[in-house]
Amino acid sequence: MALLALVFLYPLALVVQQSFQPDTGGTSVQPYADVLASPAFREALWTTVWLAVAATVGCLVLGFVLALIIAFVPFPGSKAVARFIDVFLSFPSFLITLALLFVYGTVGMANGAWTDVTGAAEGPFQFLTTPWGVLLAEITYFTPFVMRPLLAAFSQLDTGQLEAASSLGARAPRIVRRVILPEALPALAAGGSLVLVLCLNEFGIVLFTGAKGVTTLPTLVYGKAILESDYPGACVVAVVNVLISVGLYGLYRVVSRRAGA
């Protein structure tokens, strides 16, 4: 207990403390005023939030469809697919971005195919260094985080219930909407809020896209601390980021506990 307090809480407290201490010395809210007023911070905050929300929505839709298929359409390899998802989760996030560079990057596969076929000098896929590239990578990487709780929820769903529904003449879309969706709702909520938090905190993906125009709160922390050596500023951003994500994580815990009940 004391150990944890030492290595985790103590540093966090120091971060909060330092966020109130500008380089000029003394204690003030000056760093907050400076940072909160800066356009870079506001832009990063906005980018972070909309990226996270959009990625979460994307993950939920994609994850729901994929989990639905894995769980309810009989297929010999579905176990292997579920296994693969577990393995996928154990890889670091930046691998995805690295791969996307090859697939959609300026000299990558998709553009290469396009230039081969059309003979154009440049491919049409130039979005990778924009926020859209980050979004695509985040959706790709975080969808399994939605699928896992969903698969668990689906496996508990009584197949007898589905058979009863279909024997009563309900069509597949109706079954999905009326029977499966209500059951999956808690898992969706839990997975969704987890992904939201993780997206807010994601660092590797943003860093790897080389999207210089895309700055999120975590990269701002990194930039301020390491590149600019502006520790108070970094601490301020960190505190803001922590507040947002801890608040959301609390929500996730509440939601997932309700889902478990």
């Binding site: 985790f8 540093p11 120091l14 971060v15 601390a225 960190a238």
Partner: peptide, 12 residues
């Protein structure tokens, strides 16, 4: 888990 790992890094 909830605190961004960048912040954990900064804090450390």
């Amino acid at each position: 888990v909830a605190v961004p790992s960048v912040v954990v890094g900064l804090a450390t």
